[in-house]
């Protein structure tokens, strides 16, 4: 499937593309357009008015989770971090503000938007792996605490 979004992808667009490619459609292709432009036959995301966009205070990444019924707790947590980064909401997660800064930095490394997505991939893979590890540790820690 072909997807498109606005040029110069910041954290929510990078993470949304990563999510679509990793969990929905490994063959997903991405295109970048100017604000307000349309690409017939392709699905828009993180664009004004798109189904895969911001809704009721949630970010695009979270709209994709909901649409594709992805319930992996590590992805849900990642969604909260992306929202916190994208909406500059430092009350939502502690990780958000750092992610906002990091992904803003990616845009300075290259003018090629596809290259930005490529740079973002290992970062998001790493974050997802860390969140999975954190989640599994939390579950295991509970019973041992009760024994003490």
């Amino acid at each position: 499937m072909r997807y498109y979004t606005r040029r110069r992808p910041h954290v929510d667009r990078c993470a949304s593309a990563w999510l679509l490619k990793r969990f929905e459609d490994p063959k997903a292709e991405f295109a970048f357009v100017e604000e307000g432009d349309r690409l017939p036959g392709a699905i828009p995301f993180d664009m004004s008015g798109a189904e895969l966009g911001h809704r009721r205070g949630r970010c695009t990444f979270e709209a994709i989770l909901a649409k594709h019924k992805l319930k992996d707790p590590a992805l849900v947590e990642l969604g909260r971090i992306i929202r916190s980064a994208d909406l500059l909401d430092a009350d939502e997660t502690l990780e958000g503000p750092g992610m906002d800064l990091l992904f803003r930095g990616l845009l300075h490394l290259t003018q090629d938007d596809h290259a930005v997505l490529a740079l973002a991939e290992p970062i998001l893979d790493a974050l997802y792996a860390a969140l999975r590890e954190r989640g599994s540790r939390r579950v295991r820690r509970e019973p041992s605490r009760r024994k003490r």
Binding site: S48, L87, R104, L107
Partner: peptide, 12 residues
């Protein structure tokens, strides 16, 4: 860019 985008979302 980030602030302009956020203002756009708030407007939406």
């Amino acid at each position: 860019n980030e602030l302009a985008e956020n203002m756009q979302w708030i407007a939406d």
